[in-house]
Design a protein around this nucleic acid. Structure first.
Length: 580
RNA sequence: GGCCCCGUAGCUCAGGGGAUAGAGCGGCCGCCUCCUAAGCGGCAGGUCGAUGGUUCGAAUCCAUCCGGGGUCACCA
């Protein structure tokens, strides 16, 4: 249940009734009518801007509309009081029963509390990670992986059918480099000294690949020209790297539904057919691009290339799809890949890229717009850098020497749950600081700990009650008489719980999983506050002498726990039962 | 130079058409005979980068400008 949606429906229904009774002129658009909690709780539990939004188009004074609406809304049993305030806000105070019902709903719906039908079964493809299969995942990939995974969870929870997808760049020059690097390690495995030339991948992670190649080929590929071994070694090395990456993803708790291969697009006519589709739309032509604005690269020279008229779909310049030597650019298979996604029937595409791909956004959107006839929206989330620290000191990584901070390093030091939560404590387009010391700190400075601590306290109180012989199963708690929960602090807690379904929808609408992390922090804060009020006001403690009272209070705690669990599940974080 | 992101409290950041702009850290003052004080409450701290515009209403939308970062022709 979504209280906010229910109340908005009520307001719209009353406005509609007013229209049919002639109190409002016909044909008004209610789309901008909002029902939200006011920023200042002193104003009430809920407020609507209906009168102010409608005043002008209706040709009526806002207060006149507000007064009439207030009188109607006050007849609803959920509404205790409807008062007009300020320039025409209508503030609603809700009956305690409304909040008690929220607690009941959380207990009966359990893991489904907060679930939304917003997506209405729309099929969404989320492409993320898509790290080149040339080595283990490093820290730069972690954030995108977590955001993509959490976003997928969020969309699934809000009624979308989600496909999580990884695009393997296994066709470009970088996999040839991988193969050559692996060949050197193969020579090394055969007792020769490897020549890790400039431009090859120096990382130790290729040593086992060399050994695997030796096990497979013995010394038969030694002293052979590249033509003999390049293709097979490329294939084997890519496969081994992908196995590595799958393991990395598993360590982070990230699951993919589909792995798509760039290489598989070649030789099947898929690239040609995607480009032809653009050609049929008159968007492919032979031409020469202008030199880039500003500083022109020294070696710039005009070339005739096959170009995609991406400017017809919002891009700044047209983009080459074929090099002057007749081979495809990287963009071409990417167009084909997105064409494939469109053809697989997705209603919406989401790509999660590193911020260094910002320049790629417009052309990709142009391509999808052109390929789908504007039918399929593509949202691209750019993930900003993660800056690593240890005790406030920047953590450097040197790619040159082949020593970088890997995903495994991060997960081993911080743990998957902590890592995931921290990666969601900023919106994606802002850089994020990750301090290995700080994320493991057990204080409210650390949001992961703070949320987990709230959950641990809830479990502690459940254990205490159970030890006292009180039945605290969800079924029993749901059946408890919640009408004694009328203290403002308890109502506040229930209100925070009621926010959850709304927060899910807001986050899902904007593809913004970080909102859930922030929400959970606020929810935890509300709970810690309630907990501490119990120090002064013993009637606010959860465990009371009276069994029925205890069950009602525990129901509130448990409902909070349900929301924490559901929220953490979206982030892909396991709730902690007990702090140690 | 073009494009993208950012600019909100001393610091790190939420909010992103609605009423008196929020949180954490740091500072100051309080709260453990009591379910975990690993916590809570209070005080101090702001021209929401600037200027114009749209609007009943702008931190939020638009334009221009100023800072900071990223990125920029056959690479992937």
């Amino acid at each position: 249940m979504n209280l906010f949606a229910d109340l908005r429906a009520l307001v719209v229904a009353e406005l509609t009734a007013m229209t049919s009774e002639g109190a409002l002129p016909p044909g008004l658009d209610f789309a901008n009518v909002a029902v939200e909690p006011p920023r200042d709780p002193a104003h009430g539990d809920m407020a609507t801007n209906a009168a102010m939004v409608l005043a002008k188009p209706a040709g009526l004074a806002p207060r006149a509309i507000a007064d009439a609406l207030a009188a109607r809304l006050a007849r609803d049993p959920r509404i205790k009081e409807a008062a007009v305030a300020g320039p025409g806000f209508l503030n609603l105070r809700l009956s305690d029963l409304v909040w008690q019902k929220i607690i009941h709903a959380a207990l009966t719906q359990g893991a489904d509390f907060g679930r939304s039908s917003l997506g209405a079964g729309r099929k969404v493809n989320v492409e993320f990670v898509s790290a080149n299969p040339t080595g283990p995942m490093h820290v730069g990939h972690v954030r995108g992986a977590v955001v993509g995974d959490a976003l997928s969870n969020l969309l699934a929870f809000s009624g979308h059918i989600v496909t999580r997808e990884y695009y393997i760049n296994d066709a470009g020059a970088q996999v040839d480099v991988l193969a050559r690097s692996a060949y050197e390690r193969y020579r090394e495995a055969n007792g020769l000294s490897p020549e890790i030339r400039e431009g090859l991948y120096p990382g130790d992670y290729l040593i086992p690949v060399g050994e695997a190649l030796k096990a497979r080929f013995g010394d038969s590929l030694l002293n052979q020209p590249e033509e003999v071994w390049l293709m097979q070694i490329r294939e084997i090395a890519t496969e081994l790297m992908m196995a590595e990456i799958r393991g990395d993803l598993a360590a982070l708790g990230v699951r993919m539904d589909v792995y798509s291969s760039e290489k598989a697009l070649y030789g099947t006519g898929q690239i040609e057919s995607a480009i032809n589709s653009l050609r049929d739309a008159g968007l492919i032509y032979e031409g020469v691009l202008e030199p880039p604005k500003g500083k022109t690269p020294e070696d710039w020279e005009p070339r005739i290339q096959t170009l995609f008229r991406s400017t017809a779909h919002g891009d700044d310049v047209d983009r080459p799809v074929m090099k002057s030597d007749g081979s495809w650019t990287y963009f071409a298979p990417d167009i084909a890949y997105h064409f494939d996604k469109v053809n697989r029937g997705f209603d919406e595409l989401i790509d999660i890229f590193g911020a260094d791909h910002a320049g790629y956004v417009k052309r990709m959107k142009a391509a999808v717009s052109a390929l789908s006839g504007g039918r399929v929206p593509l949202d691209i989330k750019l993930i900003q850098l993660v800056k690593l620290y240890k005790n406030g000191e920047p953590f450097k990584m040197s790619k040159r020497a082949g020593t970088f901070v890997t995903l495994r390093d991060v997960v081993e030091q911080a743990g998957a749950d902590v890592t995931r939560f921290m990666m969601l404590t900023r919106k994606n387009d802002v850089a994020l600081d990750f301090d290995f010391a700080k994320v493991l700190e057990q204080s409210k400075d650390n949001p992961v700990f703070y949320v987990q601590y709230a959950n641990a306290r809830i479990n502690s109180v459940l254990r205490k009650a159970a030890e006292a012989g009180i039945d605290v199963s969800d079924a029993t708690l749901a059946a408890a008489d919640l009408s004694i929960l009328t203290h403002p602090a308890e109502i506040d807690m229930a209100q925070a719980i009621a926010e959850f379904p709304r927060e899910i929808e807001i986050a899902a609408r904007g593809n913004e999983p970080h909102r859930i992390a922030f929400y959970l922090y606020e929810l935890a804060s509300e709970f810690h506050g309630l907990w501490n009020k119990g120090n002064d006001e013993t009637t606010l403690r959860f465990v009371q002498d009276d069994k029925a009272t205890t069950q009602a209070k525990i129901a509130l705690a448990r409902a909070t726990g349900v929301v924490i669990s559901n929220g953490l599940a979206i982030l892909g974080v396991k709730p902690v039962e007990e702090m140690r």
